[in-house]
Structures are given as structure tokens and as C-alpha cells.
Design a protein around this nucleic acid. Structure first.
Length: 482
RNA sequence: GGGGUUGUGGUCUAGUUUGGUAGGAUACCAGCCUCGGGCGCUGGGGACCGUCGGUUCAAAUCCGGCCAACCCCA
């Protein structure tokens, strides 16, 4: 097998994780590189994964009264700088448009790093009274943040696809409910569709979204021991409504500043998907997110070609009437063996092998991508078996990932031990923290790890800050992060 | 932010030390074939050697700038 060097994945996940990731992303046909640093091209197969994520979230958002809109990509500097913390946080990575043709623009324009400021300037015009609230709008777009140094497809790019939701409410409680509702949507999609276990919590002051009151987050652990932020949902309080003057006439005929939220997920989720589930043969996609859930591969000698292709197409037509994403690989130019490998790199969860042998016996061979298991089934049981196996794969991918994540959440009470663990294998480190930013900063400097989240789940506290030994009531999760 | 590696048909690469205009594999196209794990055979097409400049009679090769990708560390 090792002489098949430059066709398949040539590095093992456990030997060189970074190199493995790069190979899977390109060889599975998800992306290509663009000529501009930090920008990637999403190929149809990769884009389809994003579409499926998008469709599943979009449905939930619409069901709960959110509407989609579209905002332009350019934001005047004066607007971007209106909320001071926000501006300071984003300005180092903003792309600026300074010319229109040969004309130098008198006021430079920011290419959106995120749309709060633009959206809220507009919202202030739309909102007059409590009758205009709540306003719940979502934007499926891209955001641009200059990544000068290190980039990684899906994980760190200068432009990324995402959605940003922005809501405006009458009171704080409604904003709080919104932020949690969305966090739960994200949680459900990530665990039930992407089959990635993820932890819910809140960000520390240091790590929260600049300009927010607080930031809720979902964090997952990658196989190399680093954390990846999967989603964020911010309660903005009145921090933006004041500078942007989003005021409304209340039910008591008095003027109030509105309460706001913003939230987003990005194509980073695709990066997580690859890292968590992939193996040394390539991608493994959970059925619910797979652009192709089942591939039919006809196997034939030339003289039998017509029969086998015809049977394959008949099978395809039958199965296609069910709610399945399915395709038949009738390409003549490749051998069956070649196709097996091809679909394995692409991570298609189930493959049906059909040859003359199977046709004569009224059988089909089903192969699971995640385990490699081959099963012979009766042709008439096909649709049932497919559903059963797809279900099993979806569950088993999640369970496997869950066990790994749980094994790597480690309670630590000794700082040296923490440093050692972070250095050797990483992981989620449960430790107590006194809530002083100084300790948080020092830990970051000395270990490279920061507080990924203050988990909603309560863990037993040992009442002493891991760094300064002073009183603590909070157990938080530290990790190195992407 | 600091350091390192790399760039040659679509892909992987030889050639660079010691300058003389590029060779292979794979992929592609045509035709055969016994297509159940990246088959085999015959023939064919495809290269501004990342880019810009310098040195030279002559540059993939030497020198410099730039662009891009990858890796490690903060």
C-alpha cells in the first residue's frame, strides 16, 4: 500500500496532524488555494457541506421568527469606530478600501470584519417603538479579517463564510433568552448533525467579544489537544444601542435604549468535522451532513457492463425516491478499486457494491466508511438496512468523539502539573480560577493556554485559584486554542 | 510576533552543488483488456521551470526583490 504514495493520504493522522489535515482538505476535493494569501476557493463538494449546515440552521431560525437579510460589505470608518472597544478589537485585522478607480477616497471604507456597526446604524432608523420589537435578522455572508501570518483552510482564513444574527429587544430578559436559544440551536446542530461533542459555557472578560456584555460559547477539543471555538452568542446589552442610538418608545410612552444580541457560526465547523472524524484514508462524514450519503459502485467485467450498469441505475432510482442523498458512480474510466478509494477519501458514509454475483443472488454488499465493515444484505432489505446503518454511523461517530473528549477533560489542582500536561498533550484542563485577569494573563503568557470557557455545567471546586492560590469559586476550562 | 522549509506539464518529482533551454512517474486523450481494493498493454498531446529584475555569449541552475504554500515556537 505504501507505494501508492501521491494518490491517497500519505501522512498518518497520529504522526503529523497538521500535514494530515492539509492533505485531507485538498485531496477530498473540498477546497483549492486562491492566488491571494489567506483566501481559499470552496469547491462544490466543500460548498455542499456548508449548504447543508446552512439549511439545517436556517430552518430553525425561520421557525423561531428570524428573517434573512443582506448587508453591503463596506463600512465607513466613522461607523466602525463608533463603539470604542469594538473598534480597537477589530482594527488590526481590517482590510481598507482607499481608492475608487484612480480616485483616492476622502473617507476610507472598511471591508466588514463583522457587521454590528453597520447593521445597528440601519436598525436605529427602523426602530421607533416597542411595536417594532423584537427585530430578529440574520445575514448569511462572508467576513474579512486579515490573517497576515499563519493560515489554515477553514480554521484561519482572511475571508470566511458565516452567518451573523442580530436581534433587538425591549428588555434584558428577552435578550438573555435569545442568546441561549441560539446557543442551543448551535449545540444541537454541532452534536446531532456534525456529531461533534461540544461544551457550553461563557467566555471570560478577557476573551469575550469586544463590545459585548458577555459571550456564550461552544468549545470542542480537537485530536491534537487544542480547543476550537465552534460558535458564539453574544449578549450586547445596551453597549451598542447607546452609541448607535437604537431607542424606542416603550409601552409607558418613555424612551428606552434597546437590548441587543449577535451570534454566529462559520465554516470553521467544517474544519472541526475533518479533524474530529477523519482517519488515515481521508474524510469521514456523519450521514446527516454528508453531501453524498450512499454511493453505488457497479463492479463488472466488460461483457457484463450493460447488465450491471442497468441494475445499478434501477437500484439508484428505487433508493432515490426515499429521503436519501445518493449517487451512482458509473464512470467508465475508473476501475472499481479506484472508485472505492476515491469515495473513501471523500468520506461517503456508506457504499453499495453491486456486481453480477450480487445480481444473481439478489444480494448487495454494503461497506461502512467508519469501520470498513462489509455486510452482505438481501436486495429487498436494502432501504431498511441503509437507514439502520446510516443511523448507526451517525451515533457511533458521536459516541467515539465523546469518549475521546471526556478522556481529555482533566481536573488539575497543581500549576506545574497543568504546565506539563499542556506541553505534552494539551486537552481541556479543568482548574479553579479566582476571576482576576492578572492570573489569566500570566497563565496565557507562561503556558500558551487561555480560558476557553466557564462551563455551564457545575464541576466540584477546590476553592483555590490554580495560579495565585487565592479564593476561588469558579472552575473553568483552560486549553491551547486554534 | 519569531524561526524554518518549499515552489519544475493537472499531481508527485529528477535536474540546481559544477550555467549550455527539461527527464520520469502518475493523471489526461485514442484503442485494446479477465474492472470484487488505487489493474495491465500500445500509441499520442501537454512546460512562459512561482514572479519581477540583475550577472552572463548563454540561467530551472548564480545573485536580489516580491508573491504563495507548508511546518515549528510565542
Amino acid at each position: 500500500m505504501s507505494e501508492l504514495k501521491d494518490i491517497g493520504i500519505t501522512t498518518r493522522k497520529e504522526d503529523d496532524f497538521s500535514e494530515w489535515y492539509t492533505q485531507v482538505v485538498t485531496k477530498a476535493g473540498l477546497i483549492d488555494y486562491s492566488p491571494v494569501k489567506g483566501f481559499i476557493v470552496l469547491k462544490p463538494y466543500g460548498y455542499r457541506i456548508w449548504e447543508i449546515i446552512k439549511e439545517s440552521l436556517d430552518k430553525k431560525l425561520k421557525e423561531s421568527g428570524h428573517q434573512n437579510g443582506f448587508l453591503p460589505i463596506l463600512i465607513p470608518e466613522s461607523l466602525l469606530s463608533k463603539e470604542k472597544d469594538h473598534f480597537k478589537g477589530f482594527t488590526p485585522e481590517v482590510f481598507w478600501v482607499t481608492k475608487a478607480g484612480d480616485t483616492i477616497l476622502p473617507d476610507k471604507l472598511a471591508v466588514r470584519p463583522t457587521s454590528e456597526t453597520l447593521a445597528y446604524q440601519i436598525f436605529s432608523k427602523w426602530i421607533m417603538s416597542y411595536r417594532d420589537l423584537p427585530l430578529k435578522i440574520n445575514f448569511w455572508n462572508s467576513a474579512l479579517r486579515a490573517e497576515i501570518k499563519s493560515t489554515k483552510p477553514f480554521i484561519r482564513n482572511s475571508e470566511f463564510l458565516w452567518q451573523e444574527g442580530h436581534t433587538v429587544h425591549e428588555n434584558q430578559q428577552e435578550a438573555e433568552e435569545e442568546v441561549l436559544l441560539i446557543l442551543n440551536y448551535y449545540h444541537s446542530i454541532i452534536e446531532n448533525f456534525l456529531a461533534i461533542p461540544t461544551l457550553k459555557g461563557i467566555k471570560s472578560e478577557r476573551e469575550k467579544f469586544v463590545g459585548a456584555l458577555y459571550t456564550n460559547t461552544l468549545e470542542s477539543l480537537m485530536p491534537d489537544g487544542k480547543a476550537l471555538q465552534m460558535a458564539t452568542s453574544h449578549n450586547l446589552g445596551q453597549n451598542f444601542s447607546k452609541p448607535f442610538e437604537i431607542r424606542f418608545l416603550g409601552r409607558d410612552s418613555k424612551q428606552y435604549f434597546a437590548w441587543q444580541t449577535s451570534w454566529g457560526i462559520s465554516w470553521r465547523l467544517i474544519g472541526a468535522l475533518i479533524m474530529i472524524h477523519g482517519d488515515n484514508k481521508g474524510l469521514i462524514l456523519p450521514p446527516k451532513i454528508a453531501p453524498i450519503q450512499v454511493v453505488i459502485v457497479p463492479i463488472f467485467k466488460k461483457k457484463d457492463r450493460a447488465i450491471v450498469i442497468e441494475e445499478s441505475k434501477k437500484l439508484f432510482a428505487e433508493l432515490n425516491s426515499f429521503d436519501l442523498r445518493i449517487t451512482v458512480d458509473d464512470r467508465e474510466e475508473y476501475t472499481a478499486g479506484w472508485k472505492f478509494n476515491d469515495w473513501e477519501i471523500k468520506g461517503v458514509p456508506l457504499r453499495i457494491n453491486i456486481g453480477l454475483r450480487d445480481i444473481n443472488n439478489n444480494n448487495l454488499e454494503i461497506v461502512r466508511r467508519d469501520t470498513g465493515e462489509k455486510m452482505s444484505i438481501k436486495r429487498k432489505d436494502c432501504i431498511n438496512s441503509l437507514h439502520v446503518y446510516l443511523d448507526q454511523i451517525q451515533k457511533s461517530l458521536f459516541e467515539k468523539a465523546k469518549i475521546i473528549q471526556n478522556n481529555n477533560i482533566v481536573k488539575i489542582t497543581n500549576y506545574d502539573e497543568m504546565k506539563k500536561l499542556l506541553n505534552e498533550k494539551g486537552g481541556f484542563i479543568l482548574a479553579d480560577w479566582c476571576e482576576k485577569e492578572e492570573c489569566e494573563n500570566n497563565i496565557k503568557i507562561e503556558t500558551g493556554a487561555d480560558i476557553r470557557l466557564i462551563p455551564f455545567e457545575k464541576y466540584p471546586s477546590d476553592n483555590k485559584c490554580i495560579y495565585c492560590n487565592e479564593n476561588s469559586k469558579k472552575t473553568v476550562i483552560f486549553a491551547k486554542a486554534y
